[in-house]
Design a protein around this nucleic acid. Sequence first.
DNA 1: CTGTTAGCGCTTTCAT
DNA 2: ATGAAAGCGCTAACAG
Lengths: 355, 355
Amino acid sequence: MQRKIRIKDIAEMAGVSPGTVDRILHNRGNVSEPARKAVEEVLKKVNYKPNIHISGMSLKRKYKVVITTPGVTEGEYWESIHFGIQHALEEYENIRIQCLVHTYNEFDVYSCREVYDQILQIDADGVIIGLTFKEETLRLTRKLEEKDIPYIFVDSTMENTSPLAFFSSDHYQCGYLMAKLITSIIPKDSDIGVSYAMRIGDEGANTSTLRQDGFNNYLIEKNKTNKIQSIPYSTMEPEKNDTWVRDLFHGNHNIGGVVFFNSRGGLLADCFARNGITNIPLIGVDLTVSNVKALKNGYIDFLIGQEPEHQGFLAMKTLIEYLVYRRPVKVQNYVQLDILTKEIIDYYNHFNYLT
Amino acid sequence: MQRKIRIKDIAEMAGVSPGTVDRILHNRGNVSEPARKAVEEVLKKVNYKPNIHISGMSLKRKYKVVITTPGVTEGEYWESIHFGIQHALEEYENIRIQCLVHTYNEFDVYSCREVYDQILQIDADGVIIGLTFKEETLRLTRKLEEKDIPYIFVDSTMENTSPLAFFSSDHYQCGYLMAKLITSIIPKDSDIGVSYAMRIGDEGANTSTLRQDGFNNYLIEKNKTNKIQSIPYSTMEPEKNDTWVRDLFHGNHNIGGVVFFNSRGGLLADCFARNGITNIPLIGVDLTVSNVKALKNGYIDFLIGQEPEHQGFLAMKTLIEYLVYRRPVKVQNYVQLDILTKEIIDYYNHFNYLT
DNA sequence: CTGTTAGCGCTTTCAT
DNA sequence: ATGAAAGCGCTAACAG
């Protein structure tokens, strides 16, 4: 284990000064072709790994980063993503990052448009995007590309865009997994209830739809013959849900278990609780506060987690390292899918972000 | 968000020099009582958080850390713990850590004694211990305490010791979880096979036993009436396993599923594979290379992971931060229990240690 | 016992 | 275009 190589070492090897090496490493220009050549030769030979914390100490330049996601509600999915972003900022406290958070109403495309227009006014160094509306986001990314502003997606990605990177779980696989789980715990011949969010102006290929696809394909691939029963629910008029659920479960039915593909589907668990339905296995996604509560109380049997804090953390970390060193970045990044139960939820995420 | 507070700021506020503040922060002595008082007053008011990477840069002192665990075999459990330790060393590259690895033969108490004796000769600044033999480890910890050398446990902890911290999963809960999983996927009235390692000189309360306890208690608590059938297996004479397994499964039997509590129990999966036994659900612990292979091939249905890399990482990280700043440390640290299936194994651990 | 100073690796400014 | 030098926050050696 030899001594770590420093800029000074590289400078000596290439016969130039440390200042020149630094200019090359950061593409700051003002370097003659022979000098650049010499240094790049050396760089090829040695494995130079700058220490970003030390860089940060002397780095005077400030970076402006824009975060745009659906509005953040306490205890819900997007809050975790923002926590992760904050954590990265703490870890990289030496780098001067000015962080501008612009959230939009995920149920209102006009709000999204408005927010995106604001963002385009900002002379940002990078943007982190949690998307909902495809058309609007496509337009945003086009404009960012024109201005050469790098952007990173969290939660999901989108075709026909060129993000610096994306951090997402594999939503299709999530649905596929949910199908496997539900079919392995319910009677072979029973029906499966699938809970649908009644949302206004829903998009075509959002995360829930991908999960739905994975779910359906599992059933087909494995020749499962369980009948699917749709269970609607409304976020807007929760009182309706009780009626629907009561009608479904208090009559004669053959439903062995229920799944939901949207983090708010956990509402169904409350519904079950209120109506004394305790023997129907329920599987869903996302560790929102209310879903976790239902998991602990036994109304949800399995929750699938998609590491939102980790996604946010990695997005910001990646952006920072790119901004400082402009090094190439891995584009496709899938995070873990975690299976949580009542028994292990208390240990989940205790340590991921120890400080 | 105000500017980060520095030693220089504290010095000015307390009317002393930065040198004095540093001496106090590191308990280096040579400080008068009034000076100490003044600085501690200021420290109480402001939230000073030194940057360990910058500290490391000027820290001339070297630390000597001893790692002792069972011998490391490629692709097995302890290798992951060592990977995690290495990762921490990379992240804290600025701190000069001399790392001495002393492994013992986990099947041979004499080897353990010998290694521990060697360790006691070293004038270490800290020790990370992965324990197998209780009596020997107790003796080791006593001596370390006499010499005021802090030690940290990974994988499991032990009563009547005073570690600086431990990083472990909750093994009891792991077994409890395994009982929940197996009983929810097998027919209600079927038997459960439990695979036992035939080890020589096994200890009383090792991790497998704790898992066994959790498993049994789940069955009792939930009034499960499944009969338990012991399935012996031998690491030493693997050819015997095939005979046992054939005898058990090719006759008439009522075994609905099998569990194993020791990371090497995955041998059973190979056994199943060789003998064409594909319809018996198998649940086990630890993501060793061979267990993961069996999971991917469908011979294991669920694997429980206990984040060994994370344990190692956190142990070393905690030790480093303690050595540098001597700040109090949280003692009890349980890591996650992860439920892995064929469907999600490919996404597991991809990102935990991104560099 | 305490303040001053040099230096860690890196960036930036300023002469040249 | 380039090297020399100062300075980021922190620690260590030294002079008093």
